[in-house]
Design a protein around this nucleic acid. Structure first.
Lengths: 156, 156
DNA sequence: TGAAAAAATGCATAAGTATGCAATATCTAT
DNA sequence: ATAGATATTGCATACTTATGCATTTTTTCA
């Protein structure tokens, strides 16, 4: 059985979707989801998930997931768009050319805009080709690094 | 006397430059800096500074400043560029027009690029005017909010 | 399968942080 | 300068979170 694994997933979801500021509250929510554990276990769960506690900018604090888990579902779908469409990327000076499967250029280009990679100043998409303009001072290495960070397994 | 204010500055600096994971440790460091207070006071200081506690990605946790205090010095200088140059900003549809002091449009525009506000798709700068194109789906309210968050006291 | 090893959990309690209250210190408006 | 208002602080303690240890559950492997 993967009881704990399931619970961790639920905990993560609860933290993502609620402003929770202590473990007892989280314990309540977990109970409603059918998980009956003690505060001790929850404390260990949070440590495992690397959950942090930060200011709400007002007068309180709440739990927060590490950045890597904060990627929203919608962002994930854009990442999928990129993965599905992209074929190759090559550079010339501060311009890049992305080749995509036919008809995918727009979805990939739009996804890149949404992902707002700091290296990219703008894109123009045709049918199976995207023209990428790098921001002043950015190199193709910068962009590729950023790619690998935001879009894992780009080499699939 | 502004004892507390000074102390807060030191606390902030200590947190920025060290990996501190509890208040007693911080208390020690503060003592070395010549500030003798109790844990209770420090707890209040941290709340005031909106200090958070996040995972080091390994097995521990440490204090961290809110984003607004993490702004790098170089970023601050760009923020200054914007403050020095900007006069007004108005909108029409998904376009914005920023008026600047004569000759300042380029420094402000470049600073805006560097700051990479997610609302801005791109800018074109003349001599005392900047043309801002909002990203699809973004409103002028979004941009103004972002402005206020990243560039405090824009109304000076 | 049936041990032995590893992982997960609860209990009790230690460690860490926050806060009510009273005492001071600082600021404000005469 | 001075009384009243505000802000800061320490003390004691409540609240919150982490963890050592023993127990139970799950996994591994011969």
């Amino acid at each position: 059985m993967k009881e704990r694994h399931n619970r961790l997933t639920v905990v993560k979801e609860l933290i993502r979707n609620n402003r929770i500021d202590n473990q007892d509250t989280l314990l309540e929510l977990l109970k409603k989801e059918g998980y009956n554990v003690t505060q001790a276990t929850l404390s260990r769960d949070l440590k495992m998930l690397k959950v942090g506690k930060i200011s709400d900018g007002w007068s309180g604090y709440y739990y927060t997931l590490p950045e890597s888990d904060l990627v929203s579902e919608s962002e994930k779908s854009y990442i999928q768009d990129v993965r599905r469409g992209i074929i190759s990327i090559e550079f010339s000076g501060n311009f890049g050319v992305i080749k995509t499967r036919p008809g995918h250029a727009n979805s990939v280009g739009f996804a890149l805009d949404v992902l707002a990679l700091p290296e990219i100043l703008g894109t123009v998409a045709g049918d199976d080709t995207i023209f990428v303009i790098l921001r002043e001072g950015m190199t193709k290495e910068d962009l590729l690094d950023s790619f690998n960070a935001r879009i894992p397994e780009i080499k699939e």
